[in-house]
């Protein structure tokens, strides 16, 4: 928020909040410590506002509005914890939990509990997402039973970062899926294995192969991992890396999403090229 343009003031739950022009309602919520659930939002991606879990009540608006993408306008009066808001958030989380496996989405599970989501009230014969785990190479796997269709991977692969567009949303409605063309295997697709999709996935539907294999043998232990920031060893661009180390072995490589060289993105060499260490 370095803009020198005129600031706007909005009211969030009875607190006046001054924001720089171009800020979103979510920026306002975060600036006053109003914890707001998000799924499809990331600070290095353009908001697609598809998940709707961040909705808030805006005075004068017939429907709730998504905090992540709605620009703050002077004089807005916002409620973030009204019964309407809590109901919609609860239902969104309940809908997702009734459709896909959130077992490795700790943050979402915590929010679902917070809002009292009860996925058990849907029938046992309800439609659920049921796809085989796609293990097509040694770098990352795709387990779409965990996919909440937040579009983040599509944005990271496409317009917002890599511009390889190897994946897109296909199909429609409940049958919509993230897919390559005709679901061809990744090595046949435009995928360049930058892993930027994996880095933004909120549910572990996309997983580094290292994590997938360690989980399979019960040896994935995030609590025992250290994260060290350093600089990539390949070309001269100077990408910052975060090396995740467990038992003195690198088990994953990410990039800080707030560093202005990478904005969280890497290429195949930086993301996966640490095997020689």
């Amino acid at each position: 928020m370095t803009s020198t343009e005129a600031a706007v003031t909005i009211r969030i739950d009875d607190t006046d909040v001054a924001l720089s022009a171009g800020s979103s309602i979510l920026d306002g919520c975060r600036s006053v410590g109003v914890d707001t659930p998000t799924i499809c939002y990331a600070d290095n991606l353009t908001p697609v506002n598809a998940c709707r879990v961040c909705v808030v009540e805006l005075e004068g608006s017939r429907t709730l509005v998504p905090a992540c993408s709605r620009p703050a306008e002077d004089g807005m009066v916002i409620r973030t914890d009204s019964e309407r808001v809590r109901h919609s958030r609860r239902m969104v989380l309940e809908f997702l939990a009734s459709s896909v496996d959130l077992g490795q989405a700790d943050e979402l599970t915590a929010w679902a509990e917070h809002y009292g989501a009860d996925p058990g009230r849907y029938g046992a014969d309800r439609a659920v997402v049921s796809e085989p785990v796609r293990v097509q190479d040694n770098l990352y796997i795709r387990d779409y039973d965990r996919c909440v269709l937040c579009y983040k991977c599509v944005e990271a692969c496409g317009e917002d970062a890599q511009q390889s567009f190897a994946i897109a949303v296909s199909g429609r409605g409940f049958d919509a899926r993230i897919s390559t063309e005709f679901d061809v295997e990744l090595p046949e697709s435009a995928c360049v294995y930058c892993g930027n999709c994996v880095a933004v996935c909120p549910t572990n539907a996309l997983q580094f192969r290292t994590e997938f294999d360690l989980r399979a043998v019960g040896e994935w232990r995030p609590e025992d991992q250290t994260v060290t920031r350093t600089v990539c060893s390949y070309c001269g661009v100077g990408c910052n890396l975060e090396l995740h180390v467990q038992d003195d072995h690198i088990v994953a490589c990410t990039s800080p999403h707030d560093h202005d060289v990478t904005w969280g993105n890497l290429c195949i060499k930086g993301r996966f090229g640490w095997g020689y260490v």
Binding site: V53, M91, L96, S98, R126, F174
Partner: peptide, 25 residues
Amino acid sequence: FRHESCGQCVPCRVGTTRQHEVLLQ
């Protein structure tokens, strides 16, 4: 509606499906 929901947002994608499932009962 279940058939015609584009699937983009969660309330409609899952809601139209679950609504239909309840009515089927």
